[in-house]
Amino acid sequence: MSTGDDDRRPVAEQPGVEQPGVEQPTADEPGGEYEADAARADRAPRRISAANAVIAVLLGLLGFAVVVQLRSNATDPGLSAARPEDLVRILSDLDSRSDRLRQEIASLEASQRQLASGAQGRGAAVEEARRRADELGILAGTLPAQGRGLQLKFVAGGEAIAAGTLLDAVEELRGAGAEAMQIEGSGGRPVRIVASTYFTDAKGGGLIVDGTRLTGPYTVVVIGDPQTMHTALNIPGGVVDSVHQRGGNVIVQESDAVRVTALHEVSAPRFARPVS
């Protein structure tokens, strides 16, 4: 952008046209104007670049502002040009719409509360069922159990330990509140004692418990109240007494943590169905 061109035309040659933005230099100081021109010519490069920079910044701002304004106008078309009646109608539409949405929110919140409480109830039911299944599993012998209890060791004397003796012992322990039991021979895996467990004397010595052959000495692990069971075993004429009479011995050991790990295989009932 050069300034001070030779072919500068006076405004007077353009009658009837305003010259905004650029005012004509005042006519009463022509000498000053030319002096200024001469001075500008001396330091032209620096002066022009600075002025150009300012102009460039201003025009950049203008372009920026134009785009910003166009965009902000494009975002909400129509509303600013709408008539007051239309605006009132639009406003009432929006009001009723927000009312509807608020009602919808309320009903959704209510159903959410219902569902949440239902889920809570279901969770509690599942928890209860799981607890009950655990109890029943321990009773039926399908789950391993641990707790306070006794460890009994039946050592035969002159006479072998009879199946009836062990059955008596089991009955006695049950009567004293035993909750889970298993019996183990010398070697061989332990057998869980459940309601249907049977004891028979095997030919050639030993016992058959639930189809598994065991040989003495037998170790019975039982979970229950140790004192009560201990007392029940020791009553005169009871289990310990009768074993002693036959020359054997029962070693009773109380423990705070015995483990009943043997499991009982449960077959699904063929005929019985729950009544519900």
């Binding site: 072919d7 500068r8 035309r9 650029v22 230099p25």
Partner: peptide, 17 residues
């Protein structure tokens, strides 16, 4: 206005700014 002054040959940086 600046463009017109430029075409007229009387453009002035300071005046434009």
């Amino acid at each position: 206005g600046g463009i017109r002054a430029k075409l007229d040959g009387i453009f002035d940086d300071k005046q434009f700014v």
